[in-house]
Design a protein around this nucleic acid. Sequence first.
DNA 1: CAACTAAACGGACTTTACCCCGTTTATATT
DNA 2: AATATAAACGGGGTAAAGTCCGTTTAGTTG
Lengths: 207, 207
Amino acid sequence: MDRPVVPLGRPRAERADAKRNRLRLLAVAREMLDECGPEHVTMDALAERAGLGKGTVFRRFGTRAGIFKALLEEEAHRFQELVLSGPPPLGPGAGPAERLIAYGRARIGFLADNLAVARAGMDRDIAAPAVEVDMTRLHIRMLLNRADIGVRDTEGLALQLSAALEGPLLLYVSSPRAPGDARDGGAERLADAWQDLVERLFRAGPK
Amino acid sequence: MDRPVVPLGRPRAERADAKRNRLRLLAVAREMLDECGPEHVTMDALAERAGLGKGTVFRRFGTRAGIFKALLEEEAHRFQELVLSGPPPLGPGAGPAERLIAYGRARIGFLADNLAVARAGMDRDIAAPAVEVDMTRLHIRMLLNRADIGVRDTEGLALQLSAALEGPLLLYVSSPRAPGDARDGGAERLADAWQDLVERLFRAGPK
DNA sequence: CAACTAAACGGACTTTACCCCGTTTATATT
DNA sequence: AATATAAACGGGGTAAAGTCCGTTTAGTTG
């Protein structure tokens, strides 16, 4: 009489066809992105070009922004590996302050490089980089703990710093860029500001 | 023979009917907002309920988000007056550090109060509070100049601080709120973080 | 290998933002 | 007051996002 409630735990791995289609959609999306820019990646066009139904596209990504988030996550994964096991000062091996500065600079650069995708990955309800923000916070906290300046509430300061880093990034990502060159200038400026902030805080000492 | 190129300078003040309709649309929008929430304020519905054509609505506000931005700006104007000539510590009369902290807290509170509108006022291309960010930066710079801590590059620090304040706000505005209570908790936390940051910086002294 | 089931698929349908352009009207000029 | 003109108006038209639900299929079980 017992129903085959069998695995009952996780939702039973992705089906093979589903995976194939997901990968295909991602690939096609990247193609279209490179060819015509994000604004021409429409759900209909994507579905058609991938030879799939529109329903499928929505099932996979939920929303238009979802596609761009997925695209961005692929890149973010590569970035993360540089942080975790790349060469210093971004990776392990340098001092905490150095790494903190390097991390901010790298993250700013990362978003600048993927500006179009990141921007397209926002919709009015949900901030794109939500997940990555957590990653940032954790990393910062780790570095603060390692640094032996007398910070009492590491957790709180990490939250504050990640906000100070990610917030402006979001602002930067979501602001209309002056067409043309203003882009790298903006990133450069943010990076310098971040470095200033970190140095200033390390100088301030314990509460 | 000379064409009546007459005024040639500014674009010749808003026509009376235009103004009347703009005000009417704003009022109706606010009504609908209070009744059903932002997601039900559609352009068609708004036009119909205001007894105007759809084209008119778009002419006035350019885009859906434009309506919410306009709504928000009305409120922002009131807020600004409190800052410029209200009671201390937000208004004039308190010390720079106090005012800076009060300003951040007030601004956070302001956005928390107008969360729904602010969020609806974002579209994928443009961050809503762009204009107000400038206001923030100017105000901060003014306070920093008045404070006689030895900051060399007031302009730079002001930019940094406004980013540190507005960025997290944006993050907060655009993040999906946990339904129910998480709202005020989040704002409170941000406000405390801001205060910490300011105090820490004032302690750090000159570069 | 045959039956079964949950997941994936497709594409018509609905909703909504936004465009276009012919028509109307406020305001300035004489 | 008559005329001219630039601006405002209206609402049908288009395109794209997102939903629904009947159909198909991968993977599993006996």
